[in-house]
Design a protein around this nucleic acid. Structure first.
Length: 352
DNA sequence: CATTCGTGGCA
DNA sequence: TTGCCAAGAAT
């Protein structure tokens, strides 16, 4: 049995000087330059943008980014804030462990780095919420460090450039691609910011997931997938994520315009966010409701909410109360106070 | 190494 | 409607 020859490694080495120089030139002429987080080299602002942009589209981040900076203009103000307020500013953006790690990271910068982000990818990667790729992005943008990123865009661009046929669901294959990404880095530190941005810009525009526009690509004649006419086949990623389904009942208690909210535990789905009391089935909800009122809760239309790995069906049941009992650990929240509470998207929609 | 984390947009 | 995916990291 002859092992498949690893042509991608030789390809990466052969392309190394040309690819970077072309990408850098293209980025400077055709890439994005007007995004808010591109108007600065302040590590705090660049870091904030990189965290928000993890698994999140640029258009979604834009509004959050400005509002967040107005409330927390410096890393110290973020570090000194309460986690609940950080979560409230993050509500709707998703992946809430990012907000939790963001807060922890700000405190680490304050307490262990004298209030300034450490100026190297290696040190940045040791901070909460900053992995290898995010560390490299910050270091290349702010400090011109020759450090490779490997996000979704880069996996697609390099996967096609090298016709990399390893399954990126495998960590061993991803490790190989990391090495290629480092091989392809530009020689000059002065080119690093444009190079890193160029990889992102190319992946977000011409080298898109579906219908890539190879004819306009600055590296079309270097691209192995383009040569084969099989750009859409890269990168290779077998998905084994099976979506499951969960079903719960939500008790919406109201008293004199206030709503009863409970804070979810610090781990798991919607960690630290405020929600309605959740029940495994309708019988348990009704059992709780009978302790609070002689009235029966009003059934509201079901909510179908899709998370990454499961579909969630929620059945809201609304129950106005004459007297304000305390059904457990939680808070009666007036509507005008709701913005200070971090609510998951479907609840914000339901209450809105 | 596999799983667990949100949300909105798009074909 | 359904599935896929977007500037990933932590466990």
């Amino acid at each position: 049995m002859t092992p498949t020859p690893d042509t991608s490694a030789a390809t990466a080495t052969a392309l190394a000087p040309d690819f970077a120089l072309r990408l850098v030139a293209w980025q400077r002429q055709h890439g994005r330059h007007a995004l808010p987080w591109q108007q600065t080299r302040d590590p705090y602002r660049v870091w904030l943008s990189e965290i928000m942009l993890q698994q999140t589209q640029v258009t979604t981040v834009l509004g959050y980014y400005q509002r967040f900076l107005e409330r927390f203009p410096t890393v110290r103000e973020l570090a000194d804030a309460h986690l609940d307020e950080v979560l409230a500013m993050w509500q709707g953006l998703g992946y809430y462990s990012r907000a939790r790690n963001l807060h922890r990271c700000a405190q680490a910068v304050r307490d262990q780095h004298g209030g300034a982000f450490p100026p190297s990818a290696a040190q940045l990667a040791g901070l909460p919420g900053i992995g290898r790729s995010t560390a490299a992005a910050i270091a290349s943008f702010c400090f011109d460090e020759r450090a490779a990123i490997l996000d979704g865009n880069v996996k697609r661009v390099l996967g096609r450039l090298l016709a990399f046929d390893g399954d990126l669901a495998s960590s061993a294959q991803e490790k190989r691609l990391w090495r290629h990404a480092e091989t392809l880095l530009p020689a000059a530190e002065a080119d690093m910011a444009a190079y890193t941005q160029g990889l992102m810009d190319l992946g977000a525009s011409l080298c898109s997931t579906r219908s890539p526009q190879c004819l306009l690509c600055p590296v079309q004649d270097l691209c192995e997938a383009r040569r084969r006419g099989t750009a859409e086949q890269f990168p290779v990623r077998t998905r084994k994520l099976k979506r499951s389904r969960r079903e719960h009942w939500w008790l919406w208690l109201e008293h004199e315009g206030r709503i009863w909210l409970e804070q979810r535990p610090a781990r798991g789905v919607w960690a630290g966010l405020w929600t309605l009391p959740l029940f495994e089935d309708e019988a348990q909800l009704l059992s709780q409701a009978r302790l609070l009122s002689a009235q029966a809760p009003e059934p509201l239309p079901r909510i179908e909410h899709a998370l990454t790995h499961f579909d969630w069906v929620l059945h809201p049941r609304r129950l106005p109360l004459q007297q304000a009992a305390r059904p457990g650990e939680g808070a009666w929240v007036a509507r005008e106070e709701l913005p200070r509470y971090a609510l998951p998207a479907p609840l914000k929609k339901l209450l809105g």
